[in-house]
């Protein structure tokens, strides 16, 4: 008999299934308890919806001809004042006139439908690009601060430490308020600039510490080898230490940027209509509180898992030289 026998997996998998099912049942029972009426059908319209644009007669006249063309109908109106007939296109099922009808200027003839982007999609987009911008600037700030933190120059080092401690020692929400109400007022900043700025400064401080740790984790022999070949300290940092350090800190950096996407929901307090604020606004009109918050949570989850997949892929690509 082999010394090591793998323990049976299925009882534990079964237990997991039981736990998940009872959780689902619990949620269902709980909503029954509060008499909540689920209205999931109300959610999709907040992603995309069809906007009906009323088409009115541009002139006073008579409808000369209505010719259906697929879903559309072409309505030709002969102006009372004479001249060429005017053509108006409307959806056939919204058509309100027939050939021979007299129409006044501005009369409702029918409507044209357009697909429009709903507030949830718009909010999601705002969240994505705010996170992307502040992540990009945060990385730059973090890189510079991380290098300053390791600089032999006491001024640079002191400034870096002060910045990192200030940011890490105060709540992000307070930083956003200070940035918006104080710095934003003094420098007359747009709310978006203030929001992105606050997030970038926040993530920059954490990134700086990650990058510092990464640089310090590279064996001293690496920079000694580079210096012994005559490279300057800048060249050594650029070609030898930083590429290795960045590769090594990719997993904690990924975690930081995933956090950033979630933290970006806090900019909704300075009236930036991101995903969270969109959700809050929709609830005031739809009353589908549970559905919208669940949807918003799922959207955040989708973005963060997409990013973590992307970084996982990047990590594997960089692992070629290991």
């Amino acid at each position: 008999m082999p010394l090591k026998r793998p323990p049976a997996q299925w009882p534990w998998q079964a237990l997991l299934a039981v736990i998940l099912l009872s959780l689902a049942a619990g949620i269902w029972l709980a909503t029954k308890q509060v008499n909540y009426e689920w209205r999931w059908e109300r959610v999709p319209q907040y992603f995309f919806y069809q906007h009906e644009e009323v088409q009115s007669a541009p002139v006073v006249g008579a409808v000369q001809k209505v010719s259906p063309e697929g879903a559309y109908s072409k309505v030709e109106i002969a102006p009372q004042s004479g001249g060429q007939p005017v053509v108006v296109r409307v959806e056939t099922d919204t058509l309100k006139v027939r050939a021979g009808d007299a129409v006044a200027e501005g009369a409702d003839i029918g409507a044209e439908r357009h697909w429009k982007i709903g507030p949830l999609t718009r909010g999601l987009w705002v969240t994505i690009w705010i996170s992307f911008l502040s992540g990009f600037f945060g990385l730059l700030i973090g890189l510079v601060t991380g290098l300053c933190r390791l600089s032999p120059n006491p001024t640079l080092r002191g400034l870096a430490v002060l910045y990192i401690e200030l940011i890490r020692g105060t709540p992000l929400l307070v930083q956003i308020f200070i940035f918006y109400f104080f710095i934003g007022t003094v420098l007359n900043l747009d709310r978006i600039v203030a929001g992105v700025g606050a997030l970038a400064l926040f993530v920059g401080a954490y990134t700086a510490e990650i990058i510092r740790a990464g640089i310090q984790s590279i064996a001293k022999g690496q920079s000694e080898a580079a210096r012994s070949l005559g490279m300057t300290s800048t060249e050594t940092m650029l070609h030898i230490v930083l590429p290795q350090a960045l590769k090594r800190v990719l997993p904690p950096l990924a975690g930081q940027f995933i956090s950033l996407i979630k933290d970006s929901s806090l900019v909704s307090v300075i009236a930036i209509t991101d995903l969270t604020k969109s959700g809050r606004e929709i609830i005031t009109s739809s009353f589908a509180t549970f559905e919208i918050w669940f949807t918003v949570a799922l959207l955040y989850l989708a973005v963060t898992s997409l990013l973590s997949q992307l970084l996982f892929w990047l990590e594997r690509r960089f692992a070629r030289s290991d």
Partner: peptide
């Protein structure tokens, strides 16, 4: 740095650059 380019050094633990190929190690 001007002196060091005239003085080659070989280390106990090689200290090759792990993120560069052999050729890149020698050309960098």
């Amino acid at each position: 740095n001007m002196v060091r380019r005239e003085v080659g050094m070989v280390f106990q633990h090689f200290n090759l650059f792990p993120h560069k190929t052999v050729l890149e190690n020698v050309t960098l």
